[in-house]
Design a protein around this nucleic acid. Structure first.
Lengths: 227, 227
DNA sequence: AGATTGGTTTAGGCAAAACTAAACTTTTAA
DNA sequence: TTAAAAGTTTAGTTTTGCCTAAACCAATCT
């Protein structure tokens, strides 16, 4: 068995990839400051300063001390590629393995670090080359292009509008279980029955006529289109 | 978006898991010496000595200096679980994504480190709870039980036996491409036409009557059953 | 403007995981 | 049975990636 060496050719560490992801999420083009990055990563300031130096050495970011960090073109390309993997895996976990929305994030966070370009494209094909993941988030394409971001928050619509849920923000387990309780999924359709002028909570009427209220913090994470 | 911290609960590092895997492969029950482990992992002696200490602290192995290392019960359980993941992922890559035999090992080596017991079992179910992977190797079951190891090397059969390929050893890319050239896959059936007394190469007759020779190094990695 | 506050960076530690060189066992062979 | 060869461990270094404490810049508030 001529297989002595584990021939993994990892071009980036997981930590590096996590920083790149965080920067993309927080800033995109714009510069991000140390504190925000530290909070997002879940590390302390000095760890971030240090990590940023390593990333700068690899030309993944540009940093100005005391000012902020931003992704280079190379860094942005890496970020979208990781995001592509993350969202493809989330799609796989939900559509093929039958996981619920709320369960897939942490697993996809591990899977996204697996490095094999061929696998990513075979996976995409296997899933039917989706352009949105189970939460409705756009899946970056192989060339880095980002499909349209669907919908607007419920608040931005008016009473008696007919709406369809096209995207939900990943706002933690409690949010998702509440969605499940209310039987709201991607594609659900409602009419906007009323908006409370007191706390801006929203009342919806389901297709079957049932009425229910959504708190502001719920509705601000639900994105819809008007039909 | 209350998602500041990446909540990966990794109980073992990848390096640790690789050592455990290697020990299982080399020794199973028996003790393994430093050199063999170093060769298998692709590291030098001192790195191994050090790693073994870390593993011993976690009660995954028992080590006697200058004598050897062996897995504890806990270590063996971890090893079979990793092997289960590895072989399930290989099955996925071949059967669902359409990869060839030879391509999947390195990718599965990354996927096997993803830690989510729920995912492993959903994946197994999704694949039809297989007990052998695409190479014919047994997939350890959730309780740690190892399904039967199929077949014996071609050498052990006699002229005019009718045979079916049930397993191939993972002997590197060249071996697999040669199999492909010869159109040999799991389930292929042959009769053993002759055995060279000179170099113990083997001549097979395919179902369609075609005759061809296999070198000893090829045939020793092909496992068959007699029909 | 000057001082206090807040955010950032440097300095110095620690653990994992690899390495080389040197010391130390164990085995083999004269 | 002792000496050389082979294999293993210790000692000390490196890099990644995190930490705390202390120093340092920047922005605000009186």
């Amino acid at each position: 068995m001529p297989k002595p060496i584990s021939s993994q050719v990892k071009t980036h560490t997981e930590s590096e990839e996590n920083y790149i992801k965080a920067l993309y999420h927080l800033g995109g083009e714009k510069a991000v400051n140390n504190g925000a990055l530290a909070h997002r990563i879940g590390a302390k300031g000095p760890s971030v300063t240090q990590a940023v130096k390593r990333l700068a050495n690899k030309n993944l970011v540009e940093a100005i001390p005391y000012k902020g960090v931003k992704l280079t073109e190379k860094g942005t390309a890496l970020a979208t590629h990781i995001l592509r993997k993350h969202r493809l895996w989330e799609t796989f976990l939900v559509e093929k393995l039958g996981f619920g929305w709320e369960e897939v994030h942490d697993i996809a966070e591990q899977l996204e670090h697996v490095q094999s370009p061929e696998m990513v494209e075979k996976l995409a094909k296997y899933l039917g080359s989706p352009i949105h993941d189970p939460h409705g988030d756009p899946i970056p394409q192989p060339n880095g292009a980002i499909p349209p971001i669907l919908g607007k928050p419920l608040q931005q619509f008016a009473t008696s509008d007919t709406l369809r849920v096209v995207r939900v923000e990943d706002a933690g387990t409690d949010f998702f279980t509440q969605l499940q309780v209310l039987n709201i999924t991607l594609g659900s359709e409602f009419t906007l029955a009323s908006i409370s002028s007191f706390d801006s909570s929203i009342q919806l009427r389901g297709a079957d006529g049932t009425l229910f209220w959504l708190s502001h913090s719920m509705s601000s994470n639900i994105y819809v289109i008007s039909l």
